[in-house]
């Protein structure tokens, strides 16, 4: 009996409740989430637009190979991709830390998702518009950068935002590799405080605060462009 009381007393000192300091800790971790997501989205979008352009111009051989690779990134769960590549880099003699490995995988994942969006955007521009631009004397690249991309951007923006928000949320999976972002930080706090409900709610609120405003702004933009 006295033993169990003793253990209870010990555990009382071992687990400490949620403190205000922990909120700052979570905020810092949310910064990490934002950083890895911003990196992945910006680099992944550049790759994705390039892939999308390749898909839209290439005949079936190019489109089939690239399309197959990108399709694989879209059809395999991100968590499997992360574990697979995290264990693959050491095999080729390039051990990476969780942040670098996670970012690389997220970049390719984003690129695969953006590629189909970008392709749709490029193909949404009427061929007649593109031909008109060419016959006005614009070179292929001028036409691509000054005509197709700006017009295609409009139709691709809602889908692109969806992808970007998806990557922001999916970046939570990098916690599996051990990178301390928002979700990992909340798990660390749960282990210490044994108050999973409140901490998960706070972590959820952070994600919500990052994601919801962007979703709303895009919705409004989309509505304005439609009318």
């Amino acid at each position: 009996m006295s033993e169990s009381i003793n253990i209870a007393a010990q555990s009382a000192s071992f687990f400490t409740g949620f403190k205000l300091n922990d909120l700052w800790y979570l905020a810092g971790a949310a910064g990490h989430t934002l950083m890895i997501a911003a990196l992945a989205i910006s680099i992944g979008t550049v790759f994705g637009v390039f892939f999308g352009w390749v898909l839209s111009v290439s005949r079936w051989a190019g489109a089939a190979t690239l399309g197959l690779v990108l399709d694989m990134f879209r059809s395999v769960p991100l968590i499997i991709q992360l574990i697979l590549f995290f264990n693959f880099f050491p095999i080729i003699g390039l051990p990476l830390n969780p942040f670098a490995a996670g970012t690389i995988v997220l970049v390719f994942y984003t690129a695969a998702l953006v590629a189909s969006v970008a392709r749709g955007g490029i193909e949404s521009v009427p061929v007649t518009t593109r031909k008109a631009a060419r016959s006005l004397g614009l070179t292929y690249w001028q036409e691509l950068f000054y005509i197709t991309f700006p017009i295609g951007c409009r139709s691709a923006l809602p889908a692109w935002t969806g992808v970007a928000l998806g990557v922001l949320k999916d970046s939570a999976l990098v916690s599996v590799l051990g990178y301390v972002e928002l979700l990992r930080a909340s798990q660390i706090l749960i282990t210490r405080t044994q108050q999973p409900f409140i901490i998960l709610a706070i972590a959820g609120a952070f994600y919500f605060a990052l994601s919801f405003p962007i979703a709303r702004i895009t919705e409004r933009l989309e509505r304005r462009w439609q009318s």
Partner: peptide, 23 residues
Amino acid sequence: IETARNTPALLQLFFFGFGLGAF
């Protein structure tokens, strides 16, 4: 709807797994 759409699926999973455990 907004919670489901604006938080990671993994967080929702943990919520059902560990969060409900608190109750």
